[in-house]
Amino acid sequence: MNAIKKMEKQSGFRLFLLILPLLMLVFVFSYMPLYGWIYAFFNYKPGKALFACEFVGLDNFKMMFADSYAVKNIVRVMKNTFGMSFLGILTSVLPMGFAILLSEIKNKPFRKFVQTSVTIPNFISWVLVYSIAYVMFSVNDGFVNRMLVSMGILDQGVNFLASPNHVWLTMTAWGLWKGLGWNAIMYIAALTSIDDELYEAAKIDGAGRFQLIRHITVPGLLPTFFVLLILSIANLLNNGMEQYYIFQNAMNKESIEVLDLYVYNQGMVGYNYSFSTAVSMLKSVVSIVLLFFANTTSRLVRGESVF
């Protein structure tokens, strides 16, 4: 017994050594930057040493709730953030559906072609995505506008990219087009863990293709879906900024500016580093609260949780 315990300890230590480089990377890139939160407690001025700047304590945090202009902007930004995040959550079932449909393609070369074609956009930068959008929807030279005008549907081109109308839907659509194939990879991997004997037994009992999907495939993918759903809820405030920064312009800024882009605009464009750091800190705290809320809700409802 002692020899077995000694071997288990050695095996565990070796596994720890294997993940140690990854833990170090997480510490360097995820925890060390938290030192920058200290800027939120100073009235930092570029070019001056941090501790040479005025210490203001919690003034930057109070400004988010006391200054009427700041409150108005934060409410607007939070509305955009939650709106687009909820649309993202509503469409999060589509990658699972795509993975199921892909698994039903029996021709392997064609299936690989479809999967590769849908996954490639994930590796295209948002700058190139905007270039595609500009070629398609620009006012004068866009393919869509030229086609609609030539067909007599429109008298003149419509500036789709600058319109504030339906920005949430268009951003969700572009994000879905770019990430559908990549997000489906985890579901495709989960499909391989479903026991083939379940399908064989169901076929013997007379189950058709749709019955197999409903009673075996979908239940087999639901644990993966709920884990990703919990993580999505925890990231409600983390939309990222690349997509919205690229598509942002003076006409649609009010509707497209999410929290991450607002932090960037306040800090890097408006040089208000301390206030933007305070907003970013509050976002991190709220994200942690949402993660624990979603995890607890999952444990109570489904009896399962991420941690």
Rank of each mutant, 00 (worst) to 15 (best):
D59P: 00
N60Y: 05
K62W: 14
F65L: 14
D67R: 04
D67C: 03
S68T: 13
S68Q: 11
Y69Q: 12
Y69E: 13
A70D: 05
A70P: 01
V71Q: 13
N73F: 01
N73C: 03
N73K: 12
V75I: 14
V75C: 02
V75Q: 03
V77Q: 02
M78N: 07
M78C: 11
K79H: 12
N80Q: 04
F82M: 11
F82R: 01
G83C: 06
S85C: 09
L87D: 08
L87A: 13
G88F: 08
G88S: 14
G88D: 11
I89S: 03
I89V: 11
T91W: 09
T91Q: 09
V93M: 12
L94I: 15
L94A: 10
G97M: 13
A99I: 09
A99F: 03
K108M: 09
K108L: 11
K108I: 14
P109W: 11
F110L: 13
F110G: 01
F110A: 07
R111K: 15
K112S: 11
F113G: 00
V114K: 02
Q115I: 00
Q115E: 13
Q115G: 00
Q115H: 14
T116P: 04
S117V: 09
V118D: 00
P121S: 07
N122G: 00
N122Q: 14
N122A: 12
S125E: 05
S125C: 04
S125P: 04
Y130Q: 06
S131E: 08
M136E: 02
M136I: 09
V139A: 10
N140W: 08
